[in-house]
Nucleic acid binder design. Structure first.
Lengths: 169, 169
DNA sequence: TCGTCATATATCGATTCGATATAGGCATAT
DNA sequence: ATATGCCTATATCGAATCGATATATGACGA
């Protein structure tokens, strides 16, 4: 996933490692560590997906290669029905603008269905937990409730994105 | 953190591995993998924090030891000012009922301050990003906005928890 | 000129992940 | 009865990621 995210950012323009880390963090869902970032850059270099060139000071500017663009595309267009982690979806979403409009809706719609299922099970579990709860379980219940509310908010947000996408298409 | 979470669940009653995984997942913020869980149980056994006993079928019921209770307490009471990951906070919150009331508020209050800082930076970054955004960056912007909204919701939720805690105290 | 601080790359050991193997128990269809 | 398929349950592997830390550079002000 990190490789995917790095390639996505480099599609736009060359960046050095530290800058990639900052840009990723600014997306809001992932504060990637150095211990992840620099090994990932080595991986991508070894695969020929990116190339480093000296920049000012200690900086190394990384640039995506033609091969790298191919890797990015195949990651971007991976089957939405296949298993995808939360982070996987978020990275894909960040670069969804690179897909044609109807494929975008497919990706978001699939995610929406997954979240709906999650929400239903969360609701059942919560009802069960509430009925069995002692007072000292208050915070565990609160966590479950908050998690449910977050999922609901995620779904509503996705609906908004899909609606916006349809209205421009 | 996983060790902490496992001990917290075992404080209540003995459970076997699979059940620990389910209980953790039901908290909503962590679907722990087997590859994390079973090594964690080995670690805790080796430290003498938990003990396994045969249960029905292949099941092994794990029970927390006196030493384990000590480990749990020291993890629970760790300085709230010290660096804490998101997941670290959530685990601590799940078992916050084991702390005296005023310490609970300290923990939540510290988290609240961290989230406030996050929110401010996120806001600045978003403003900056909006002004420089091209059309294809739409989804990146949407991610940032959603992340901000989530942080706002987290803060509001924390405020509710703190208020509830004060009202019972 | 000397600290000091933000920037930047790098590496270490430990944790966690995601996938997979294996096998027991239980319900249901043949 | 017994075969089949499906949850349950423990376990392990290699790879990705984390969190902490080391080190060096450049910019800026005391």
């Amino acid at each position: 996933m990190l490789d995917f995210a790095i390639l996505g950012l480099l599609m736009e323009r060359p960046r050095h490692g530290y800058e990639l880390r900052r840009a990723l963090g600014e997306l809001g869902f992932w504060k990637v560590s150095f211990g992840s970032l620099y090994p990932a850059l080595r991986r991508l270099e070894k695969r020929g997906a990116i190339e480093a060139s000296k920049a000012s000071g200690r900086r190394k500017a990384y640039e995506i290669t033609e091969a790298g663009r191919g890797v990015f595309d195949s990651l971007l267009q991976a089957d939405p029905e296949a298993t995808e982690t939360d982070r996987g979806f978020q990275v894909r979403l960040a670069f969804l603008g690179h897909l044609p409009s109807e494929r975008r809706i497919q990706v978001m719609d699939h995610r929406r269905r997954e979240l709906s299922v999650q929400l239903k099970t969360a609701r059942d579990i919560l009802i069960e937990a509430r009925s069995a709860a002692k007072n000292e379980d208050r915070y565990r219940i609160a966590l479950m409730e908050h998690s449910m509310q977050s999922t609901e908010a995620d779904i509503a947000w996705l609906d908004g994105l899909v609606a916006a996408e349809r209205s421009v298409a």
